[in-house]
Design a protein around this nucleic acid. Structure first.
Lengths: 243, 243
DNA sequence: CCAAAAGTGTTTTGGGTACACCCATGA
DNA sequence: TCATGGGTGTACCCAAAACACTTTTGG
C-alpha cells in the first residue's frame, strides 16, 4: 500500500514538469515497398490506437519537444519535422479512451489526473527512413508499429483527422520536403523515386515528365548504373545533393 | 481596501475560466490607400505594443476563441480567419513586459499571476474591411489602432516574428484567401484590385496579365462603368461572385 | 489633339504532357 | 530476337508574360 501511494506521488510529480493542456502529436511517415506508412501506438490490452505523442516540458522549446517525441519513439535525431496545425476541438476532450488506458494499466487515477484534462494538440509530421527507425513503445503502450496508411486501425479521438491533414500538407509540400531525401535510401533509381511520389500523391505520374522535372530541379546527382539482374537496361542510381 | 480585495478575487475567478499556458494572437490585416495595415494594441502608458490576443476558455473551441478575439477588437463577425502557426519559443516567457503593463495598470500581482506564465501562442491571421472595423482597446490597453505594416512600432516578445510569418502565409495564400473579397469594398476596379495584390506581394505585376488571370478565374463579375472624372477612359467596376 | 489609363488582341515563352524511338539486358 | 523497362529527343498544348494597339475621357 505504501508503495502504491509512493508511486502515485511520483507519478504526480513527474506530470508537474509538463505544461498542462498542451500535447504534441507526431505523424511519422515512413515508406517501404510502395507503401506509405505511419507509426501507431497501441495502448496496453485496450485495443486503442493513437498517434505517437507527448507533452511539453515547462522549460523546453516547442520544436524541441517534438524532436524529443520523435527520438523517443524512433531513436532518430536530425529528422525532417514540420509543424502543420494545432488542433483544439472540444471533441478532443472526451476522456473515456484515456480512462480505459489507465484502467488497463492498473494506474490509479481520479478526475483531475493529468492525462484526463482537455488538450490542445500541436501537431507535426516527420519523414524518416523506414529501415533506420527502431520503433519503441512508451510506458502506456504495448507496441509502436508501422501501419500502411491505407490500412490504418481506428484511431482515438480526432487522430485520424490529424493524419489526414498531415497527409494533405505532405502532398502540397512534396517538393519542398525533399521527400526522396528523407524517405528513401541514400541512393535510389528514378523509378523508385517516382513510385514514392505516386504513392504519396495517390496518382500516376507521367514517366518522362517526372524524369525531366527531377533532373531540371538540380537537386539530383547521377551516380553509376545499378545491376538489377532484370531483363532490361539497368537504371542509373541517384543521390540528392545537399544544398 | 475591501473593494480592492474584491477586485483581485474577481480577477482571479475570471482567469480561472481560461486554459493556462495557451494564448491566441491575431494578425488582423486591413487595407486602405495602397497601404497594408494591421491592428496593434498599445498598453496603458507603457509604450509597449502588441498584437491583439486573448485566451481560450475551458469550454470553447479553439477556432471560436480566435473569432471571439477578432470580434472583441473589431466588432466584426463572419471574417476570413486562418490558423497559420503555433509559436512556442522559450523567448516568449520573458515576463518583464507584462509586469510593466500590470504595474502601469495599478493591478496588484504576484509571480503566479495568470498573465505572467509561459504561453504557447496559437496564431491566426484575419482579413477585414478597413472601413467596417471599429477597433476597440481592451482593458489593459489605451488604444487599438491601425498601423501600416511598413511602419510598425517595436512589438513585444516575438510578435514581430508572428507578423512576418503571417504575411508570408498571406502572400502564399493570396488567391485562396480571396484577398479582394475580404480587404476591399464590395465593388472595386481592376487596378484597385491589382494595387492590393502589389501591396501584399511587395512587387509590381503585369497589368494585362493580371487582368486576364482575374477574369479567367471566374470569380469576378463585371458591373457597370465608373465615372471617375479623370482624363481617361473610365474603368469597369467588379464584384466577387460568391461560391 | 494630346496625355493618361483602361481594355483587348497577338506574339512569345516556358513548363508540362504525349508520343516515338533507341538502349541495355536476360531469357 | 523478343519482351521489358530505362533514357532521351521531338511535337504539342496551355497558361503566363510581353508587346502593341485601340478606346475613352478631361483638359
Amino acid at each position: 500500500m505504501d508503495d502504491n501511494i509512493e508511486q502515485v506521488t511520483a507519478d504526480h510529480l513527474s506530470w508537474e514538469e509538463f505544461m498542462p493542456g498542451i500535447s504534441i502529436d507526431c505523424v511519422i511517415f515512413g515508406y517501404h515497398r510502395r507503401e506509405l506508412k505511419i507509426l501507431i501506438l497501441e495502448y496496453k490490452k485496450s485495443g486503442i490506437f493513437a498517434l505517437p505523442g507527448g507533452f511539453l516540458r515547462k522549460n523546453e522549446e516547442l520544436n524541441d519537444a517534438a524532436k524529443r517525441v520523435l527520438f523517443e519513439r524512433t531513436g532518430l535525431a536530425d529528422i525532417y519535422l514540420y509543424q502543420f496545425h494545432t488542433f483544439g476541438s472540444l471533441k478532443r476532450s472526451d476522456t473515456r479512451p484515456m480512462q480505459t488506458v489507465l484502467e488497463k494499466n492498473n494506474t490509479p487515477f481520479d478526475d483531475g489526473h493529468f492525462l484526463l484534462q482537455r488538450f490542445i494538440s500541436v501537431s507535426y509530421y516527420a519523414l524518416v527512413d523506414f529501415k533506420q527507425a527502431e520503433p519503441v513503445a512508451d510506458v502506456l503502450s504495448d507496441s509502436c508499429r508501422w501501419y500502411d496508411t491505407d490500412k490504418l486501425p481506428q484511431l482515438m479521438l480526432d487522430h485520424h483527422n490529424i493524419f489526414e491533414k498531415a497527409l494533405k500538407h505532405l502532398q502540397i509540400n512534396i517538393d519542398r520536403s525533399v521527400v526522396g531525401l528523407n524517405l528513401l535510401d541514400d541512393t535510389f533509381t528514378m523509378s523508385e523515386l517516382q513510385n514514392l511520389y505516386e504513392t504519396i500523391l495517390g496518382e500516376k505520374l507521367n514517366r518522362t515528365g517526372f524524369h525531366r522535372k527531377m533532373m531540371l530541379s538540380g537537386r539530383l546527382k547521377r551516380l553509376g548504373k545499378k545491376k538489377t539482374g532484370k531483363p532490361h537496361r539497368s537504371p542509373y542510381v541517384y543521390r540528392f545533393t545537399e544544398d
